[in-house]
């Protein structure tokens, strides 16, 4: 017995189309439009790849105390000078930015140090100098007890203009860790002839 694929079957789809309500025909198009719009929104709000490692930023002001991660710090003053020296007698000329601060750890003294100290000016990033006696990567940060000291940044001659961002952290890298961020108005800092770095010791 053969099934004759004849006229009745051929006629059915066309007839069906003529009888389907307009709304049902438009439904797939409407769904496509909604999904496309949704995809565009998701793409627009999606964070960049590096967002999963972005640091937790805690904003600070000069004189105020801020906490981020295992670091609590209070920046006491920001100065600029054409030459710096330290209690051991070392001296260096150049364009220097000196940040005086108190810092302590929060949870643990084990491995605690002021290991991230960066100054970002425009598209350049500077790191605190390891020369001379400063608080940079030297000495322990104690939970609950503030240490007082300074950081020095060696800058190019023409760099003391515009705004800069100072970032401090008690962690080996900034990724996934807390970081204290302080905006600095470089143009508003008077440039002194010589600054003596304070000796690192207990605050207060």
């Amino acid at each position: 017995m053969t099934i004759t694929a004849g006229a009745p079957l051929a006629e059915a789809p066309a007839a069906q189309a003529a009888r389907t309500p307009w709304a049902r025909k438009a439904l797939p198009w409407a769904l496509t439009a909604v999904l496309l719009a949704g995809a565009w929104v998701v793409n627009a709000v999606a964070l960049p790849d590096s967002a999963s490692e972005a640091p937790f930023v805690s904003a600070a002001t000069v004189g105020g105390t801020a906490t981020a991660g295992n670091l609590t710090a209070k920046v006491i003053g920001v100065h600029a000078a054409r030459s710096i020296n330290d209690p051991s007698g070392w001296t260096a000329e150049g364009t220097w930015l000196v940040v005086e601060l108190d810092a302590e750890a929060v949870d643990s003294q084990y491995g605690s140090m002021l290991s991230v100290a960066e100054l970002t000016i425009g598209d350049r990033t500077f790191r605190a100098t390891e020369r001379g006696q400063t608080m940079f990567r030297t000495g322990a940060l104690v939970p609950g007890v503030m240490r007082h000291g300074a950081l020095a940044f060696e800058l190019p001659e023409d760099a003391l203009k515009g705004t800069a961002a100072l970032r401090l952290a008690n962690a080996s890298t900034v990724a996934d860790n807390g970081v204290i961020e302080l905006p600095i108005d470089l143009g508003g800092i008077p440039i002194e002839d010589d600054i003596t770095l304070p000796e690192t010791g207990w605050a207060g």
Binding site: T125, T129, E130, E154
Partner: peptide
């Protein structure tokens, strides 16, 4: 080494 004896071999940008 540094000429002024301060140690440290990190070169800051444009300095």
């Amino acid at each position: 080494s540094r000429v002024d004896g301060g140690g440290g071999a990190v070169l800051q940008p444009d300095v």
